[in-house]
Design a protein around this nucleic acid. Sequence first.
DNA 1: ACACTACTTTAGAATCATTATAAAGTAGTT
DNA 2: AACTACTTTATAATGATTCTAAAGTAGTGT
Lengths: 136, 136
Amino acid sequence: MNKKENFINKLRSSGLRPTRQRIEICKVLYDRKKTFHFTIDTLSKILRKKSKERISLATIYNTVYAFKNKNYLKEITLNTNKTYFDTNVTSHHHFLDENSNRLIDLKNSDVGKVKIKRKIPGKKIKSIEILVRISD
Amino acid sequence: MNKKENFINKLRSSGLRPTRQRIEICKVLYDRKKTFHFTIDTLSKILRKKSKERISLATIYNTVYAFKNKNYLKEITLNTNKTYFDTNVTSHHHFLDENSNRLIDLKNSDVGKVKIKRKIPGKKIKSIEILVRISD
DNA sequence: ACACTACTTTAGAATCATTATAAAGTAGTT
DNA sequence: AACTACTTTATAATGATTCTAAAGTAGTGT
């Protein structure tokens, strides 16, 4: 399979061994058209359904954080008790639907330029993240 | 004391009984000039130092969430494992210093107008929060 | 193919923030 | 002083995440 090869190359090229578990996780995360927002818990449930592999929770944690370190995933900031991740690692903003607690990506073209007028001496801006809360 | 009276009135006016514990917590939170960003843990430590009252963790949690519901505190969104609160309840934005993990308030005048060009049918914008990550 | 080593996976225990419980204490009212 | 609803509290329970250490596996060299 072409896709599987791609995942294997992707993993190898960043120094991660392409194990069965990691490939299964790649399939869930990257074999889709739209950005995927998830928690460890949701990912775990999807894996249990879609994959024959029985992947332990610890491995899912390990893999997700390994992918995050390799910049294949981005951690998202919300005030919930769980940590969210995003397969869209580009700098972008979000809607948060407070009714469903779902995230929706905003393209950069969806947001006008943000001007930060204040400077902190000796500090550089690393990123600017906007969270737009919406509800019915 | 004038300040203590103020706290008592503030509490009573929102239907919260002015207990010793709540008044001590008010002193820590509101008897200061600048905005205060904190976690339950930091608040707990400050109380242990500054107050003779021995206030239980449960009460600190109860009180902080009671204050949040009365809009005396605001919950802040960061990706850390702990929940942060802010005594500045007005709509405003933050710098997050990634070296020290400290928050710095941005006045609205520090940030240019943010334009959200995309609309989600049937949904209204509740708030727009910007987090500007900075580091050395 | 075989052996070797470093990297991985795993089940289960440990940790840590937060929430729930239910008994004892207290504010405000009569 | 008595009463009732609201509070506080110690403690247990929960739930996400991290740790541990033993068993498994990929990649390399022979």
